[in-house]
Design a protein around this nucleic acid. Structure first.
Length: 119
DNA sequence: AGGGTGACGGGCC
DNA sequence: GGGCCCGCCACCC
């Protein structure tokens, strides 16, 4: 198992579900922590997403930079290694920001909402 | 066994 | 718009 440190089997399983959800976020879109939690089956547990993200090995193919907070901002520490890095990666994917703020109305990931529900 | 700490968020004011 | 408070809960002293 990819057990990071010592964490409960429960938490490890939750993290996997969360990372799997994050992998579904397409380039050019972003999702909030709360949104990922909900989509992964853990409504109201945004902090669990933060926890999962904190422990993602860099080598792993998880688009961590596509997860931002509900204010449309990076929750990483200010600086080139934190917010700058995340905003840079997002910019490469076409996600624009004004003074570090991303317009969620434009770039929020909308899982399967594109499915036309014809009446 | 307690208390503190978060890559959070919603509700209020 | 911004700030505060409180719920959340896994982990770490």
């Amino acid at each position: 198992m990819s057990r990071l440190g010592r964490q409960s089997a429960d938490a490890a399983q939750a993290c996997e579900a969360i990372l799997a959800t994050i992998r579904r976020i397409p380039a050019g879109a972003v999702a909030t922590y709360g949104q990922v939690a909900l989509e992964a089956g853990f409504p109201g547990r945004a902090r669990l997403v933060a926890y999962a993200l904190r422990h993602v090995p860099e080598a792993q193919p998880v688009p961590w930079h596509r997860v931002i907070n509900a204010q449309g901002r990076s929750s990483l520490s200010p600086g080139a290694q934190g917010q700058g890095r995340q905003l840079g990666l997002l910019a490469e994917e076409g996600v624009e920001h004004r003074d570090g703020r991303i317009d969620l109305r434009r770039f929020r990931w909308q899982p399967r909402s594109d499915v036309p529900l014809l009446d």
